[in-house]
Design a protein around this nucleic acid. Structure first.
Length: 182
DNA sequence: TAAGTGATACGC
DNA sequence: CGTATCACTTAC
């Protein structure tokens, strides 16, 4: 398996950490990922896959390294990277990124990132490991960033799960999302 | 602190 | 069918 896809073939926590520092490319837009959240699988009550295999969650059951894009609150498109072995539904939410191209506003929240980069559900299921995809990832070029962890955001409905430290950030980055709980 | 927005999942 | 809920953001 190609090295980039291999980064996502393990569990969502490992993938969430490896995604930090990678560059997200959509057309002319480029942004460096600085904050991610892991959604571990069917047993994770905060993970959409806990609801079972549905039309929406179908892509999470597919191969790793593909996009899972969905609409929340009727207006925000959120981008996730499918992780885990094929058939095991898990994903990593991209929460914030550092703008690398001119004319990009702050990408300090998953909804703002989706809107600024022009991401919507038409990109659901695209292969993020294929440089030919309109939306794809580039491997991290620099050194491995120092990583900070904290609780996930916006999933208080999921019992004890929200308190687990499955949210990962590039330590000290000024480009993270607003609820800065660390 | 609350509204906005529409897909989704689930109950009937 | 109806309707409750939502991995968020922005304006009061």
């Amino acid at each position: 398996m190609a090295p980039l896809r291999q980064s996502f073939a393990g569990d969502a926590i490992a993938a969430a950490r490896r995604l930090l520092g990678m560059v997200l490319v959509h057309g002319a837009h480029r942004a460096r990922i600085v904050e991610t959240e892991a959604y571990l699988g069917p047993h994770d009550l905060a993970c959409h896959a806990a609801k079972g295999r549905t039309a929406r969650t179908e892509v999470m059951f597919g191969p790793p390294g593909h996009a899972y894009v969905y609409l929340v609150y009727g207006m925000h498109h959120l981008l996730n990277v499918v992780t885990g072995p094929e058939g095991y539904p898990a994903a990593v939410l991209i929460r914030a990124a550092e703008p690398l191209t001119p004319n990009l506003p702050a990408l300090d929240g998953p909804g703002k990132l989706g809107r600024a980069l022009g991401i919507d559900r038409r990109l659901n299921a695209v292969d993020l490991c294929d440089p030919g995809s309109p939306l794809h990832l580039e491997p991290r070029d620099g050194p491995r960033p120092r990583i900070a962890a904290g609780p996930r955001i916006g999933v208080d409905y999921a019992g004890a799960w929200p308190h687990k430290p499955y949210r990962f950030m590039v330590a000290g980055s000024p480009h993270g999302s607003r609820p800065r709980l660390c």
